[in-house]
């Protein structure tokens, strides 16, 4: 079971359709069952039953999650792979000691791979959809795997499979999510 975490400003919000439902659909199509929890209500039982966790993005105006970073402390002790998308990457970076900094980007941009990882399936450059008001300075315990002209685009923890991506893979780069799931759950998900 894949735990999908909704980072929007409230549970069952109008943004859920845009930032959570597409991820649920990608996970479903990849053949994995999933459960979705709002970030304010993630329980230990949700984490212990998960094969991997995906933290979803939020609307440009929605930085409520960043005022409640204590809700993401569980990532430190998480024993399963984690993928943070946009707001999810910001939350991961912040709880490990990185910084969330103003940096707005809207639209398609080129992403260059600078640290090869199986998650890229051999790609060295790809075009990705950006929708963020903030970017991150990664914590020391993370490696930078990909960058754009404006900011760090992909990070990975140095020793455990915790990833952050700044772009939105649900738009034109679904392979990022399926590759993460396949690589980290021992299943070839495409």
């Amino acid at each position: 079971m894949i735990l999908i975490v909704d980072l929007c400003w409230k549970e069952d919000s109008l943004s859920r359709y845009e930032f959570v439902s597409p991820i649920e659909e990608i996970v479903r199509r990849a053949g994995f069952p999933s459960r979705t929890r709002h970030f304010a209500s993630v329980q230990d039982a949700d984490l212990s039953g998960a094969a991997a966790v995906i933290l979803c993005g939020t609307a440009l105006m929605d930085n409520f999650f960043a005022e409640h970073l204590e809700r993401f402390e569980w990532v430190h002790e998480c024993t399963v792979p984690v993928l943070g998308i946009c707001a999810g990457m910001q939350a991961i970076a912040a709880v490990f000691g990185g910084r969330i900094e103003p940096n707005a980007e809207i639209g398609m941009t080129d992403v260059d791979v600078v640290g090869p990882d199986a998650i890229f399936s051999g790609r060295e450059r790809f075009s990705a959809y950006e929708l963020h008001s903030f970017a991150v300075t990664p914590p020391d315990s993370f490696e930078v795997l990909a960058v754009s002209e404006r900011c760090v685009q992909v990070i990975r923890h140095a020793s455990v499979p915790i990833y952050g991506v700044m772009f939105h893979p649900e738009v034109r780069n679904e392979w990022v999510v399926t590759q993460f799931l396949g690589q980290n759950t021992g299943t070839d998900a495409g």
Partner: peptide, 11 residues
Amino acid sequence: GLWCFNPLWHA
């Protein structure tokens, strides 16, 4: 400085 919602996005 306005919110933007696309409730059919990738539906």
